[in-house]
């Protein structure tokens, strides 16, 4: 298949996914509408994670800190300073980007296993910071956003985040935006440089690439997307709490990405969707539902390291982004 046709086709497939998400809101009952809203936001988180892991080959075990940066950046400004939703949302994203940049300056001096442990530790520190400043964050117990801050005016429209359909569509909008951003980043020359770093960093450096700067850019972008997910999550569900900064939330995007397929755009979306419902169903039967997480992780890494979309791509359509 020539590259022009394949681009159109892959755009078409991604558009079809977005459209089916859009159509679903007319048939889904309230419970699943809520679930899918969460899934879409978590999928943004996974897509951000995947930008770093799947395309650049850097496995972070601390992405919860970026999600939390967005969540607390948005939530605290609303709660303590009474910022309006759009401002708080953007502030959350910026917090994540800045944190990503700073962590990157330090952690990107390491690679491989050391990078994993360093990011894990910084995420632990972020969690402890939230717990330590419990006066402002209420730590584990968390904060509930007051209802009067949940409506806002944007471009002449008045939008209320208490309405579940509105939330659903906003989440879909953000997800579409994220897919588009990832799509554009990984298709062109920049994407080629990322893959080159993933496949062989020292060689890439000897081909004239400032690999540190590229990795720093990607980490910052990845952190910003993760923070966007956290920021939206805080504002839409009107709650922030330190549980979102635990190691659990660093492992989840890895799990989603591994399941769906690292280095694909649809993979993390699919992975988030499946894993979310798998856990949802398991939690009806047992309080130890995280057992599913463990089992899936082990099975994936043993038998299915490329994930669902990774396998599809390898077998049938290599052009899938």
């Amino acid at each position: 298949m020539d590259s022009k046709n394949s681009q159109i086709l892959s755009l078409g497939i991604h558009a079809a996914v977005v459209i089916s998400f859009y159509a679903l809101q007319y048939v889904l009952p309230e419970y699943h509408l809520l679930a899918l809203t969460r899934i879409m936001l978590l999928a943004i988180f996974a897509l951000g994670f995947n930008l770093l892991f799947g395309y650049t080959g850097l496995l972070s075990l601390g992405h919860a800190m970026f999600f939390a940066a967005g969540m607390y950046g948005a939530g605290l400004t609303v709660y303590h300073f009474g910022w309006s939703v759009p401002g708080a949302f953007l502030f959350g994203v910026v917090c994540g980007a800045i944190l990503g940049f700073v962590i990157g300056m330090i952690a990107l001096r390491t690679t491989g296993v050391a990078f994993m442990i360093v990011t894990l530790m910084f995420a632990k520190v972020s969690y402890l910071v939230i717990v330590y400043f419990t006066t402002y964050t209420r730590g584990d117990e968390g904060l509930v956003m007051p209802a009067e801050f949940r409506g806002f005016e944007l471009l002449g429209m008045s939008i209320s985040l208490t309405d579940s359909v509105t939330r659903y569509n906003l989440a879909l909008l953000l997800l579409t935006l994220t897919m588009l951003i990832v799509f554009l980043l990984v298709r062109g020359r920049f994407g080629r440089a990322l893959v080159a770093i993933r496949e062989n960093e020292s060689r890439t450096r000897m081909l004239g690439y400032n690999t540190f700067a590229i990795k720093l850019k990607v980490l910052t972008a990845s952190a910003a997307l993760s923070a966007m997910a956290g920021s939206a999550y805080a504002l839409m569900f009107a709650y922030i709490g330190s549980s979102f900064a635990t190691i659990q939330y660093s492992i989840d995007p890895l799990l989603y990405t591994l399941l769906g397929g690292a280095g694909t755009v649809l993979g993390p979306v699919f992975g988030t969707f499946s894993m979310f419902y798998l856990i949802d169903i398991a939690s009806e039967y047992t309080s130890a539902y995280l057992l599913v997480t463990g089992i899936v992780l082990v099975l994936l890494i043993l038998y299915f390291p490329k994930g669902v979309f990774g396998a599809i791509r390898q077998k049938y359509c290599r052009w899938l982004p």
Binding site: R192, A193, V195, A196, E199, N200, S202, R203, T204, L207
Partner: peptide, 14 residues
């Protein structure tokens, strides 16, 4: 020290 998982063309293009 080539990118053995990528195509020959991608190697040269990088």
């Amino acid at each position: 020290s080539i990118y053995s998982n990528l195509t020959v063309f991608q190697n040269a293009a990088i």
